[in-house]
Design a binder for these strands. Sequence first.
DNA 1: CGGTCCCTTGACATTCATCAACGTCGGTGG
DNA 2: CCACCGACGTTGATGAATGTCAAGGGACCG
Lengths: 202, 202
Amino acid sequence: MEHHASCSEYHKGESIYYQDSAAAFGYRILSGAARESVSLTDGRRQIVGFLLPGDISGLWARGTHSYSSEAIVEPTIVARYSRRYIEGLIESDSEVARLLHQLALDAVERLQDRMTLLGKASALEKVSGFLLQMANRNDVFGLPMSRYDIADYLAIAVETVSRSLTGLRQQRIIALLGSRQVSIIDRLALERITGREPPISH
Amino acid sequence: MEHHASCSEYHKGESIYYQDSAAAFGYRILSGAARESVSLTDGRRQIVGFLLPGDISGLWARGTHSYSSEAIVEPTIVARYSRRYIEGLIESDSEVARLLHQLALDAVERLQDRMTLLGKASALEKVSGFLLQMANRNDVFGLPMSRYDIADYLAIAVETVSRSLTGLRQQRIIALLGSRQVSIIDRLALERITGREPPISH
DNA sequence: CGGTCCCTTGACATTCATCAACGTCGGTGG
DNA sequence: CCACCGACGTTGATGAATGTCAAGGGACCG
């Protein structure tokens, strides 16, 4: 399948694809990071997801992309696959079909996680949940995106993101090594803030 | 496939499946309605989705259900399918595989809609967007769920839902025929609110 | 009746968005 | 090298939106 892919390098801020454009390709981030966003007519922007290395994008849209996608680190390298080709493969190769189905399930799972994040009541809960999502078992990790991106992702103001982070820092729940590097000191406290209930036995 | 299904009738408030229980079955609502919810440690509840007749549930979870599901109207009739059986079918019947894949894509689409709803800034925007989602081409429709359910779905307080609705009613954008029946009078105004605008003054 | 939901409204408290100012960092050109 | 600039991040002050608390009414049911 790899020889049906083409790789491109994108600069920070550069668009990978545009909202409402024909969804002819699937994309896969090889290095760097990107954001998927919707822009509203009044200039507000809603970020619907971040793409990290290994992540797939553009495969679930029907017809046209619902979102646009832009690189957010310098540089970001992306592989592009023809969807027509992929869909042909699905028909002929049940192994590929299974893989694609699995990827769709992954997408559902991530969307559900994101939903429960947005459903949180307070800004502190949202930020804490976001950090836990970004901390993939690793207590120290980098944030490739800006505070503005985080704000638009969580649907709160930039200032509130900043204040929540300094609040967490002052309580020694996290430490910040520079503004884009986070270290979780007290993971339990973070999880308590987000408030997911432990399993109930029957 | 139908003879591998079993139908059950649920009373209002009765659980169809439980959070963290083994996801052994897929479900399909035949009549009535249900809600999918997560309960948080502090007693708050987050509703992640409503299930209306024809809707599918439980097929995307891996291992255990992330949510619990309860009937919200009296009575609610649900068909239950063994997932093991379905997964066997996927292997052997590419037609079923395609159908299931399609259903997964639908699920992604609905989750994305819901996400953009939650991403809205103001409560009025959320409620308006919710009404538009429930009004499926039909300007007059019923709301099977209570105000509390709507509140937990949109992550706002019950009182705010109520106030938003009376606000819309006072501006003659909607009419309420009893508390569970809505008639959209000015769909354009609703869409304008959802799109981007601050509250309209009177 | 008397109880229990469900819905609405009012009064008040709190959170958060907004506006404004300032600091930092990295790049760029004088 | 330094001055300047723009992007980004933080902090403070303030008002508006919304959560919280309280009360009451209506529908349904025993």
